[in-house]
Design a protein around this nucleic acid. Structure first.
Ligand SMILES: [Mn+2]
Ligand SMILES: [Mn+2]
Ligand SMILES: [Zn+2]
Ligand SMILES: [Zn+2]
Lengths: 133, 133
DNA sequence: CCATTTTTAGTAATGATTACTATTTTTAAA
DNA sequence: TTTAAAAATAGTAATCATTACTAAAAATGG
């Protein structure tokens, strides 16, 4: 419930903050082990998750571990329920405007494409949100 | 290289097209087994991947399999290299405009948030493709 | 029919993540 | 400072989505 001050957590956070590489847990584990050779991979996973839940670090990506598929290959957008994991189509007229701006952004960045995903609890979701903190 | 016509592929595609649920491979496997009780899970995975590569179905992809973390919790955006999997910060003045439109979209949709990810090969990328998200 | 290519079912292996547990460390109050 | 409760740890095992492997079956294009 409350964060204890441990060298493991301090080093994990400070090393992560030094990096611009957006490491995976195991990549950070390799780095942290130079300072704390005895640290375990599980500790890195656990601390990153805890700190992400607390908003101290950012976890890149909203999707779950399982891939999802769609028979509709037209460009359209999805909203994922953070509680039950369901994915639903969403539609909004403003998205064509967003797309046109993002196509300019793609040129600026010399990027290939973009993905947008919305999050929101589904109306008929029966799983109650678990409040953290 | 060329798709043979098999009952497995036909049923997988037709059942996927019937659904609005954006199923995972194993969810679709359960459904397809009602028509083809002998089909194997591997066949469902393989066909979905092949058809996604061919653009016949859509794979909802935001993020690779490994989670990535960022010490910077300010809202900013990332570009993922489809070849080596590296994730880099990107910056563009137009994004504030995109954000303001999307905040309106959030109200329309009664959604909570959004996630945007760019894809693009990194300049110095020479690594072989690691994963196809 | 036949030779070649593709696909399959079934199973094993992989790999990221999470769960478990006995022990250690931290905390906060006495 | 002592101490009991709470939190966190290292090490390991288990989970589970996905991918790889393989011999057999099916599809293809004559
Ligand atoms: Mn859809
Ligand atoms: Mn970043
Ligand atoms: Zn829901
Ligand atoms: Zn790259």
């Amino acid at each position: 419930m409350k964060f204890s001050r441990t060298s493991q957590r301090r080093v994990i956070l400070s090393e992560l903050r030094k990096l611009k590489s957006h490491p995976t847990a195991d990549e950070l584990y390799t780095i942290v082990r130079e300072k704390l050779p005895q640290i375990s991979l599980g500790t890195v996973y656990r601390n990153l998750d805890q700190m992400a839940e607390a908003g101290i670090v950012q976890r890149l990506e909203l999707c779950g571990r399982q891939k999802r598929f769609d028979g509709n290959i037209d460009r359209h957008y999805h909203m994922r329920c953070p509680d039950c994991g369901a994915v639903k189509d969403v539609e909004n007229d403003r998205m064509s405007h967003v797309e046109s701006i993002l196509s300019d952004v793609l040129e600026d960045l010399d990027a290939e494409g973009f993905w947008i995903e919305f999050t929101g609890q589904c109306k008929d979701c029966n799983k109650p949100r678990v409040e953290i903190i």
